[in-house]
């Protein structure tokens, strides 16, 4: 298992919002929701669009391209046009900093 990596200060992500976070060749999205902070892969499983401009609605993220929706905590695809779940990653907040384990 890899180590925790710092993403940003927790107040850099607005409530009910997300930020894009790139690490090496990979791209992720980190969310601040009413249930806490979460992280998923950055690319939608439907048409390979980045979720960077996606909408966070409660604990759901909506892809900006075709409005496919995923449950943020589990990554579960919530119906057409998305059928394949997003991969999720552990996130923790310590001393006002958001960390991800990828």
């Amino acid at each position: 298992m890899s180590d925790w990596i710092r993403v940003c200060a927790s107040d850099e992500i607005d409530e009910e919002d997300l930020i894009r976070w790139d690490h090496g060749e990979r791209s992720f999205v980190v969310y601040n929701t009413e249930q806490g902070y979460f992280a998923t892969d950055g690319i939608c499983t439907h048409a390979e669009q980045h979720l960077e401009y996606g909408m966070v609605i409660g604990t759901v993220v909506e892809c900006p391209a075709h409005q496919g929706r995923f449950d943020i905590p589990t990554g579960k695809a919530l119906g057409a046009p998305v059928c394949v779940d997003l991969k999720t990653y552990p996130v923790k907040v310590e001393d006002g900093q958001v960390f991800i384990r990828v």
Binding site: H46, A47, A65, H66, A80, P81
Partner: peptide, 13 residues
């Protein structure tokens, strides 16, 4: 409905 949604997402792409 699903035909409508899938063909329309394709139209946007």
């Amino acid at each position: 409905p699903l035909h409508r949604r899938y063909t329309h997402t394709n139209h946007h792409s």
